[in-house]
Design a binder for these strands. Sequence first.
DNA 1: ACGTAAGCGAGACGGTACGTCACGTCTTAAG
DNA 2: CTTAAGACGTGACGTACCGTCTCGCTTACGT
Lengths: 208, 208, 208, 208
Amino acid sequence: MSPVPGADPRPPGVLAHPTTPRSLRVHDAALRAATELLAEGGLPAATMDAVVTRSGVSKATLYKHWPSRTALAAEAFGLRTAGAAPPPDTGSARGDLTEQVRRVGAFCAGVDGRVFAQLLAACVTDPCAGAYFRAFCLAARREAVAELWRRAVRRGEAAPGVAADTATDVLLGALVLRLMAGHAALGPGEADRIADAALNGLLTAPGS
Amino acid sequence: MSPVPGADPRPPGVLAHPTTPRSLRVHDAALRAATELLAEGGLPAATMDAVVTRSGVSKATLYKHWPSRTALAAEAFGLRTAGAAPPPDTGSARGDLTEQVRRVGAFCAGVDGRVFAQLLAACVTDPCAGAYFRAFCLAARREAVAELWRRAVRRGEAAPGVAADTATDVLLGALVLRLMAGHAALGPGEADRIADAALNGLLTAPGS
Amino acid sequence: MSPVPGADPRPPGVLAHPTTPRSLRVHDAALRAATELLAEGGLPAATMDAVVTRSGVSKATLYKHWPSRTALAAEAFGLRTAGAAPPPDTGSARGDLTEQVRRVGAFCAGVDGRVFAQLLAACVTDPCAGAYFRAFCLAARREAVAELWRRAVRRGEAAPGVAADTATDVLLGALVLRLMAGHAALGPGEADRIADAALNGLLTAPGS
Amino acid sequence: MSPVPGADPRPPGVLAHPTTPRSLRVHDAALRAATELLAEGGLPAATMDAVVTRSGVSKATLYKHWPSRTALAAEAFGLRTAGAAPPPDTGSARGDLTEQVRRVGAFCAGVDGRVFAQLLAACVTDPCAGAYFRAFCLAARREAVAELWRRAVRRGEAAPGVAADTATDVLLGALVLRLMAGHAALGPGEADRIADAALNGLLTAPGS
DNA sequence: ACGTAAGCGAGACGGTACGTCACGTCTTAAG
DNA sequence: CTTAAGACGTGACGTACCGTCTCGCTTACGT
């Protein structure tokens, strides 16, 4: 980590700790290590001690940057995962929202889904990590749906009386429930069925 | 639990462990202890050691009856909680399903909701407990909705193309998602809004 | 530690954990490890983690057997060190006590003296270890002097008004003080001078 | 310590750091803070971070003035404690030395005795602090006894063959031993008994 | 008068060990 | 054969304090 004296590969004139404010170096190293560990063994592998070992950042320092190991893991996972794909634009609200649900379904069914579930689970135990999870793992996904929703409302394709929050959770909740409880499949077909059901409504006759 | 010597209230001739198969006594004692502990401090309080202490059942025995502490806790919680209230019967599918969602919402928002969330979280880590959770905590609740759903289909009030499983998860998923992630409120009004949105559908124009 | 399955070198018929009551095995293993570590690097080397590693005994178990690492170290050191040499018997109280002081002086000046000092120091910080230190490291040494003292009193060679405790501490105190503070030498000549001074008295004219 | 802007009580024209060489201010502030902390919670409370916080002197600076926290503490404690009381002058060597031993005994038995013991203990671990301890905490006390001793020798009341160093350690050693190990009382009566024993000698018949 | 060097406040950092916790496995002895 | 009792190994936790380091400001001094 700190350059070994006499083995300094930096050209003269370059400071030992270049521009990088000390904190940044640490922050990055820890996140990188956590990301790798999560990819290798999921949350259980992303032990604080493991992060310490791999990143070279000391445990005390880690706890100055994050309130708990779960928070660190959530940030690391979120940063890697929240890569904003361009929002779907199929021309219709139905198509857009269905596609988005399908994407989230694929995410849940994939390798990352497992880690996502582990993080969500950990946040139940560790409330201070909840904020990190919501900020780094949840917000972007919910916002993506909410954005589509608002566009649909503007176009007059969506029920105007439904809040974006409500619509979002109705569309995504079933997927997350299945991911966590494991009582039903999560394949692409299921995502479609869920999207259809939620978008069309469950009842035949409209009401209140 | 363990018969106190010299303080045996049983009449002579009655065996110490009468008809009751030994296992049942153990099973019950453990579940009772776990139930109390869950009520007092949630899942974190329902330590195996705590169950051992309170129930008088030894640890080795517990692990012969349940594969993990989470499994025991799930069974204990499920038995207390799955008390079958009579299904709502308002005369309309809309009313019934809305009422049922409202009930689940109230459950999630209440004290038991926290434990439910902790158990669901624990099952992500402990897959063998997942089966217990699904059997004792989840099945009854999902079945209650599914039953209403099937009735609605029979009456022609529900979209016939939607499977009961799908309908159930769409109705309940949003609640569970909010319970776990804590990003939005869980009050009774919210339950209504979610039920309305799911039952009416999110879009204005029907499709596919 | 626990026999690797399939690699058991024991002849058939020999139990895995023979007669040895479990606790004894642990106690011994820990003490042995601590003794070695103390010999290799003094108290600083006798880390709990090091004892864990070397002995195969888990940390939690160690803390069930000893209240602190210092206590464990004190017991280990005392057991090795308190080997009862036959008490000196030169025929005179003067000779016996001088010889005993000389022995303690040699002990203090030697390698073990350093560890003795470290333990005594640690007991100031860790009061619950103090009892272990007194029992395992101090008692035998003080008792050896006190025994000589009582014999001297019986023979009429010692001042009868002086308690054994007092005599003991006057004879040994100077050595320990020098060991701890390091302000003066601890060679054999010094031991003699100290013994002479204490036995003869510091003043020329007797008093009170 | 660091001049609060806008709250400077100094008359105009007086420099912020007048003649006082910078180092002195720092030295004093650190010692004052350490002294207070020692009084409040003994050595364990006199953490470097605590001194930093209370004195406003930075950690790096502290380590330029003292080699270790123990050294700083020893100096602080010594300066407060080594207040030279006028040496006893009872007219006889016996009286003077007894009084001095009694004083040291009272010191050991009091609140400061605990800190003294903690410092002596710390110096075993931290050799570079040993010099500070000897200079600030030990030297004055030993010198006071030695001075009395030399006077006694001049007056012919003391055994001339005994070096001042030896006499001093014989008189004080027992007290320190009891302070550190805690195996016996340290009351005023004990101080008297120790002084008597050492001054009169332990044996009845003079020898060598 | 100004630049240079030193002294300093601030505090992040790596390191090492601590003592604690709960899990799930295991042994022993009693019935 | 089942059980109570509880010791044990495992693995991670979060904390504490050490002593080192860098940064950037301020003062003192030399020219």
